[in-house]
Amino acid sequence: MIDVVLSVAGGMLALAGLLLLYRVVVGPSLVDRVIASDVLLTTLIIVVGADMAISGHTRTIPLMVVLAVIGILGSVSVARFVQRAPSTSASGGEGEL
């Protein structure tokens, strides 16, 4: 039964990864790419976790924790960057940080 779970879950996760990769590559906007790469990272967390649960080891727990911690960094920094882009007229009046 474990084999079935492994192949079904692995297949779904792999397909999800491919779709997300497509969204990262195609875009169209920077925000779309950020969202997709964020979800790609979460997919990685879930893959690492599912591997632990299925094979019953706990070696990659630190990896899971680190991924959960750094997940926010990419999207937040890019979000700041998008906001500051000259094309966004709305951000013109914002106070300096």
């Binding site: 906007s29 920077l30 925000v31 779309d32 950020v34 969202i35 964020d38 967390i45 727990i61 899971m64 924790v65 959960a68 911690v69 997940g71 926010i72 999207s75 937040v76 890019v78 979000a79 700041r80 998008v82 906001q83 882009a85 094309s87 966004t88 709305a90 951000s91």
Partner: peptide, 28 residues
Amino acid sequence: LIPVIVFQLLTAPISAHMVARAGYRAGD
């Protein structure tokens, strides 16, 4: 594993909010 969930619960909405705000302002 609790820290994993805690970090996700705390950071996911913040990053979602910031991306949404940036997306809205950039007209995405």
